[in-house]
Design a protein around this nucleic acid. Sequence first.
DNA 1: TAGATTGTTAATCGATTAACAATC
DNA 2: TAGATTGTTAATCGATTAACAATC
Lengths: 208, 208
Amino acid sequence: MKVNKKAVQRLFHYKNLLLRLQEDGVTRIYSDTLAERLGVTSSQVRKDFSLFNIKGNKKAGYVIGELVDRMDEIFRNDVPRRVVIVGYGRIGSALANYNGFHKQNIEVCAAFDIDPAKIAPHGAVPVYHLNDLKTVVGDTGAQIGILAVPERVAQESYRLMADAGIAGVLNFAPIILSPIAGCMVTSYCVEGELNSLMFAVDQQGEQG
Amino acid sequence: MKVNKKAVQRLFHYKNLLLRLQEDGVTRIYSDTLAERLGVTSSQVRKDFSLFNIKGNKKAGYVIGELVDRMDEIFRNDVPRRVVIVGYGRIGSALANYNGFHKQNIEVCAAFDIDPAKIAPHGAVPVYHLNDLKTVVGDTGAQIGILAVPERVAQESYRLMADAGIAGVLNFAPIILSPIAGCMVTSYCVEGELNSLMFAVDQQGEQG
DNA sequence: TAGATTGTTAATCGATTAACAATC
DNA sequence: TAGATTGTTAATCGATTAACAATC
């Protein structure tokens, strides 16, 4: 089986739980315990680990320290990973200043907008004009970009990001972007998720 | 095949594309065309439609007006759907004022926080103290809640929401919530998504 | 009618779960 | 050793894609 996105996401959550357990002084864990804590099956935990070549000890479970080290290695958590944000509106600025990133060694190194009133190259997170995207991406070596612009300019902004050398985009505009070679996209649509949740709730109501 | 979350999400995106086409004066469409525009297969489009009992015309494709009407019916888009937001920090306030919601007939009817400085019951979106959650949920009839609080209080806040009668929660705290009966959860973890995207980019780099 | 498109059934693909041999 | 847990293979489950009969 190939490593897929969902397995990567689970690995990320395993890691975060393990870090919390480590803080509590726990040093070893069984796949069973880990599974229970995260609401998955123990088969899945072992399968995921095997996918990433993470080894435990028969009978003795897993050493949390070793697990965390291996995961840091897999995710390259030793080097800070740089991210730029395109679109400094409500969502963009909220993410630029989100304090959950540094724990994961993710660094928002710059944001971009076309509104002159928002440009602030000397802020905690510098905000530049979109025209400077290519230069800044070149200088910082950022590989990943967050796209948080209005729907109607999303495709064009994505093109500019791909052009600037960004290799992966996390898109928050509520539109499916047509892919550009060399720059992969993952999209998140809040209204779509809410809609989907509402549908699920409605359906459940009909049954129960 | 049962209706699943991914199919619901696709239906939502079909609808949005169809609305845009309608504005351009297009009145009919084939599954082929629709599929191409959204980067899916035409089999999938027809399968999705069949899942929701959406009918077209052999040889003549689908009438966009009929499709949109049927989808509005499925999603109950005729009545405004009310949402509350728990946690009025950066993410919470960004979402409270996000202007992509009203297009989908989603109404953020109230937000909640425990910081007295944030309470503002007469704002465009009223912000109340968390203590008032149950009352306000009762009064407004909101069924869905967005959870945007710090990780360490996420599980407890979720419990309060379930308690207040919220039937579905969209969680943005980077933690897996243990489920409470009667209140389903969908989670989104930005740092997890970024991490996953970085992993994918790294992997691609190794191969190419 | 001939050609083209829908709607559905069957085939394929991929991910999760179960089972169990290896082993500490 | 006996018991328990990992690691992996096989079985199951679910979703996507392909194929094609129905039909306009």
